[in-house]
Design a protein around this nucleic acid. Structure first.
Lengths: 111, 111
DNA sequence: ACTGTATATACCACAAACGGTATATGTCTG
DNA sequence: CAGACATATACCGTTTGTGGTATATACAGT
């Protein structure tokens, strides 16, 4: 897994990060909240950790994961030069999202 | 290719977008500037177009591609909730840190 | 219509990612 | 020490993405 972007390409990993954005969580907490099998959670956390997106704290048998911001700031930095292209009409995003699939917004968009 | 993020996972595609951020370009211009084979450029442009990142204008035999901002704004929107984790705004973490070493910190924000 | 140019697509081979299952490692409790 | 619990990893099969090459489509100029 080369870059921050390819790490974020996976929907489950983005979900994990969004969850961890609220507060740190143990593996089993993530497993329950996101309803995904434990090996899958561990594997995605491994990828996220290798890419620097999360770090783990050991608490007895648990590993509590929390976000590291550096890779996210990388993404932010890559995005920065494009921001001038839309700074001015901010509501274009809302129109776009509304057009996509309003009823089933929680998962990724379909093709 | 499901999401905006998986589209951005490819380095060549990010390079194309960065190039198009400066100005619109024809396929052959992209091919020359990025030194990648023409079929590769066309294929990546196809993916970018399907994901809404670019659109093409026809100019005789040329297709001139330019950026569309909506998917980039999607990324920006996904990133937004994380920004508080590193921004200079006053949130709980920041107040906590301020309490720990108040004397050396200035109160203004960075920008 | 023929030729050169610009761009798109079809096909193939290969590598890598993902989900699922089983198993290994490690830690706590009794 | 056993046995339960928490997490990680190994293995496997399938899918998907990517680069390369060849070819198809479209337009321009003569």
């Amino acid at each position: 897994m080369e870059s921050a972007f390819s790490t974020l390409a996976e929907p489950n990993r983005r979900a994990i990060l969004s969850l961890l954005a609220q507060s740190e969580r143990s593996v089993s907490e993530i497993e329950q909240r996101l309803r995904m099998p434990q090996p899958s959670v561990s594997k995605h956390l491994r990828v996220l950790r290798d890419a620097g997106f999360v770090e783990a704290r050991v608490d007895a048998q648990r590993r509590v994961y929390r976000i590291r911001t550096e890779p996210l700031m990388e993404v932010e930095a890559w995005l920065a030069p494009f921001r001038r292209l839309w700074s001015g009409h901010v509501d274009a995003l809302e129109r776009h999202l509304d057009r996509m699939d309003a009823p089933t917004r929680k998962k990724g968009k379909k093709k």
